[in-house]
Write a protein that binds this DNA or RNA. Sequence first.
DNA 1: CGGAAGTAATTAGCAAGCTAACTATTTGAT
DNA 2: ATCAAATAGTTAGCTTGCTAATTACTTCCG
Lengths: 173, 173
Amino acid sequence: MSHEDVNPGAAPTLDQARKQIARYGLEADPQAVLVAVRLMAAGARLDRASEVHFARSGLSTGRYRLLVDLEDGDGEKSPSQLAKSLGVSRATVTGLVAGLEREGLVARRASTEDGRGAVVVLTARGSRRLHDMAADHFARLEALVGGLAADERGLFLDLLERITQRIGALTAE
Amino acid sequence: MSHEDVNPGAAPTLDQARKQIARYGLEADPQAVLVAVRLMAAGARLDRASEVHFARSGLSTGRYRLLVDLEDGDGEKSPSQLAKSLGVSRATVTGLVAGLEREGLVARRASTEDGRGAVVVLTARGSRRLHDMAADHFARLEALVGGLAADERGLFLDLLERITQRIGALTAE
DNA sequence: CGGAAGTAATTAGCAAGCTAACTATTTGAT
DNA sequence: ATCAAATAGTTAGCTTGCTAATTACTTCCG
């Protein structure tokens, strides 16, 4: 065995990126590759941590986002609208709503205007759940970013935005 | 209906963050919250785009990472080591290896040193698959980050690192 | 106004992660 | 030397997301 610490879930290093690029005889910029890979890794880790975080309130990330989306609106929305604003498929919304309805955080009614449609309504219980979570939730979000000064946060937002705009490049063609 | 574009999978805005914080009567810094929420949203989107990207080569993100991890080493590793370095559970590795083995990209041997252990070996076919993907893959990673100048990339890496260090804060206690 | 095409929601079935439980082996402490 | 505890790997069962197919209703065109 060597002396390398295996370093669980390790963020990849610049050297690793360089080695890979060299191995394939490519011209890519190791630093650019590193940024992409690190962001992906961070995203995956954050996703999982987020699930754990929301699980404490008996929710999942998706369910929480759906509740917030309802509360941000007038408290009701169709599944299709929810799918669009959450950026998930309608099938996923069906599943999320089913779970939330089972817990009484949300109710479903048939639409009065469109015979095909449904309307998802935030219940008092759902609203209360959001309020109960709020203080802890926002405190944790702040803590996550607490290592950055205010101006650094603005900078980070800008840079992140400029990367996410190009996510399509991953799958384009 | 209002004039708001529903803006599919919309990144949340500073105003939305402000409104939420106000609704719950909290003191949180809207910009800090926005950074956290945007990063989470970006992570989720990137994750899904990444799956689509790797699916073109008949892989998933997890399977790709496992292959790369093998190639970065001496071409073989135990499932436990893989789990540690990939930051996933051993059960997940079992599943990934099963899939990769089915496609002949990887092979499994019993460990000679430890009667409980196994060794996962990258096959020639697995190695070839990585090479075949490399040019396109790295080009896309570069494109993702192409909106940032070299010094901005360094900056971004630094800021991202300082946030990811605190992911634990989301789930701590 | 009648039928084709489009849209809303759900259902079924898939992959990736997880935890918990189980088997087999090794380690280590008495 | 033995037996308990730790470790390696797998399995089973859960959740979240997806796509594709199904059903029901609207819309729109001729």
